Simulated assay, not measured.
Amino acid sequence: MRLDVSTDAHGPLFDGRAQRLANAYVDHLERTLAEEGRTILLAELDRVLKTQTPYYTTRIKVENGRAITDSRVAYGPWLAGIGSRNYPVTRFKGYDHWIKTRHRLNERKRGIGERLLRRYTGRM
């Protein structure tokens, strides 16, 4: 007895559409999380800075679609509390705006990711 089996593989998993959509999802998620983190960081700075000057806040940007940076402003490490001029050299211990931003973004990332994923799974 002889048995021949043939299959026909077609659809998003086989023609590369699912892979392209998965890559697009990851890119979109990284950009969205970075922008959300920038928004959180600016809100934290607004909360802790007593004297608002726009120089530092206008330098906070999302680079390469995934990294939040203060564009290497000279006094950025001092504000964050990791500079050489912070406590014990001076009384100023710095603000925890970067740390709080990381924690708040980590709390929100799952919901953001799930909302975005719904847009992509229907097309996969």
Rank of each mutant, 00 (worst) to 15 (best):
M1T: 09
R2M: 10
V5Y: 11
D8V: 14
D8A: 08
A9C: 09
A9E: 09
H10A: 11
P12T: 09
F14Y: 14
F14E: 06
D15G: 02
D15T: 06
D15C: 05
G16D: 07
G16A: 07
G16W: 07
A18F: 01
L21M: 11
A22T: 07
N23E: 14
H28F: 02
L29N: 09
E30G: 03
E30K: 15
L33S: 09
L33Y: 05
E35W: 05
G37E: 06
G37R: 00
R38E: 09
T39A: 09
T39N: 00
I40E: 01
I40T: 00
A43H: 09
L45K: 02
D46M: 05
D46K: 10
R47E: 14
R47M: 12
R47D: 13
V48A: 08
V48H: 09
K50R: 13
K50I: 06
K50S: 13
Q52Y: 13
T53A: 13
Y55L: 13
Y56S: 09
R59N: 15
I60S: 13
V62A: 08
N64E: 15
N64R: 12
R66G: 06
I68L: 15
D70K: 01
D70Q: 02
S71C: 03
S71W: 03
R72S: 11
V73E: 13
A74P: 00
A74M: 06
Y75G: 09
P77G: 09
P77F: 08
P77W: 12
L79W: 08
G81W: 03
I82H: 09
I82S: 11
I82T: 13
I82A: 06
G83K: 00
G83E: 11
R85D: 12
N86E: 06
P88R: 00
P88N: 01
P88Y: 02
V89H: 02
V89K: 12
T90A: 11
R91T: 04
R91I: 02
R91P: 01
F92V: 10
F92K: 07
F92T: 06
K93N: 03
K93I: 11
G94C: 05
G94D: 05
Y95I: 07
Y95N: 11
D96N: 14
H97G: 04
W98P: 00
W98G: 03
W98S: 04
I99N: 09
T101C: 07
T101M: 15
T101D: 10
T101V: 10
R104D: 12
R104M: 14
N106H: 14
E107T: 15
R108P: 02
K109C: 06
I112Q: 05
G113P: 01
E114K: 10
R115L: 10
R115Q: 10
L117M: 07
Y120H: 05
Y120E: 04
Y120I: 04
T121N: 03
M124Q: 06
